[in-house]
Write a protein that binds this DNA or RNA. Structure first.
Lengths: 165, 165
DNA sequence: GCTTTATAGGTTATAATATAACACATTGAA
DNA sequence: TTCAATGTGTTATATTATAACCTATAAAGC
């Protein structure tokens, strides 16, 4: 994981982050013969405007502005496609969606979510994944899907809370 | 963790499980000077009827039958109280609630959820917790809340799927 | 016991999130 | 160029959750 994919890294260059995500998405969809249509690309771009997970309904106004239909099914369809391609993840504990920095190979992320600034980072989850697999295997349980969402305070917000409550 | 708190254990005695949960709940609330009112106790009992997480709206008919008001706020209030006391957990990925077998000390569980029979077991999550803490600490992130929900197939359902698709 | 205060529950309305169903348009392939 | 598959528009509705306000009940102090 490169530092600049981390929302709370001090050296985070977000424009680079967005550009990279979109370029990668186009490339991946081309390779997989999947159609990254204007709506889908716009939704992905909107989600990548920040590292804060966005709710589906928060995306609708921007879709309307761009001249698209802005009824819920439009955005949910785009999100469904993006999730299938691994380009975004859904955060179950927030009912919201966030861009995936590593869509090359399908996976389910583990997330650190700051309750104060809402910034969310995807963890490189090998050890977490291993711990889950092991606990599951001990009970004979076959793991198919993992939802790992950790809420707390990012480094920046720890400082902020400390100084002004 | 005793075997009989595990939903997919072969020797699971569910009536014992329910009785134990209710007895423990009464004891805990007494100790904490919290009121386990009839509605709250009924909701807890309903949730413990199975190890399948139940949605809030699934509880309403039974509340109505028991002569209580059955508007949503009634059940959400009871669930909020039960969660605060650690007697039930909310499963974010299902929007549903499940009984907690170890409410004595507050914690947030890790769950194994069978996608076929919906049975859900709470893991003793020390190693998972440690892995999360470690990953978070490496980024300077302060953990406050953990949502760990693993979906897959329980041992029974693995056999079933294998034999009749 | 009575009064006061806090907590719990009843009730109505509505917010927030998500999907069903069907018609029409566009794309890509035969 | 026609067909089949996929994507989008549109309307309606399902599902999950909370706000707001009022009444009832419990517990705590006098």
């Amino acid at each position: 994981m490169t530092t600049d994919s981390l929302a709370f890294a001090a050296d985070h260059n977000h424009q680079h982050c967005i550009d990279q995500a979109l370029t990668l998405a186009r490339q991946i969809c081309r390779e997989r013969r999947q159609r990254l249509t204007p709506i889908r690309e716009l939704v992905l771009k909107l989600i990548w405007q920040s590292h804060q997970p966005l709710g589906a309904y928060e995306l609708l106004p921007a879709l309307a502005e761009a001249g698209f239909n802005s009824a819920p099914p439009t955005v949910y369809r785009a999100l469904e496609f993006l999730q299938q391609q691994g380009l975004v993840h859904r955060i179950a504990s927030l009912n919201a969606f966030v861009g995936c920095p590593h869509p090359e190979h399908p996976h389910q992320g583990s997330f650190l979510i700051c309750r104060r600034c809402r910034s969310t980072s995807e963890l490189d989850s090998a050890s977490i994944h291993a711990a889950l697999e092991q606990s599951a295997a001990a009970l004979g349980f076959l793991v198919e899907q993992e939802t790992v969402e950790v809420t707390g305070l990012c480094p920046n917000c720890q400082r902020q809370e400390h100084s002004h409550g």
